[in-house]
């Protein structure tokens, strides 16, 4: 298992995939900031006054982190951001479900119109695992 986590091809593929996902998600949110702000509001997790600021800035951080993974520029820093964000999104969806909120996920802006639910949690968990793999140090012959 540890060896698998150090397979540089697997790490690269996970990085490329998560980078792509984050870029697509970020572009959808950047395209409609107002809608994303409403979706954040619906989660009821932060002070109202901060919602627009997060809606304005978070998609750009996602975009840069995604690009960093996809292009391989400082990929571990980008991957770390992606991992932390995925963990946060997972918690956000779980909390929304626990509170019985029937809301749009906002994961990909309004593009997919998906709701929070068990399926979303499984998706997020899967992507969290991929992101975690993407930040592993590749297997290094000198260390073997």
């Amino acid at each position: 298992m540890g060896r698998l986590l150090r397979n540089r091809h697997l790490i690269r593929i996970c990085g490329l995939f998560m980078g792509g996902v984050f870029i697509v998600a970020a572009m959808a949110k950047i395209g409609d900031v107002a809608a994303f702000s409403t979706q954040i509001h619906n989660f009821r997790m932060m002070p109202v006054s901060l919602e627009n600021l997060v809606a304005i800035t978070l998609p750009w951080i996602e975009l840069l982190a995604g690009l960093s993974l996809l292009l391989g520029i400082r990929p571990r820093a980008g991957g770390l951001i992606v991992t932390v964000l995925m963990a946060f999104f997972l918690v956000a969806v779980a909390v929304a479900m626990a509170r019985g909120l029937d809301i749009e996920c906002g994961c990909f802006g309004t593009a997919d119109g998906s709701r929070v639910g068990l399926r979303k949690m499984v998706e997020n968990l899967g992507m969290l695992i991929l992101a975690f793999i993407a930040i592993q140090t590749p297997f290094n012959r000198e260390q073997a």
Binding site: V33, A34, S37, V48, S49, E51, N52, L53, A55, I56
Partner: peptide, 8 residues
């Protein structure tokens, strides 16, 4: 864009 600060 949107205002820096949102309203409820």
């Amino acid at each position: 864009g949107v205002d820096w600060i949102s309203v409820d």
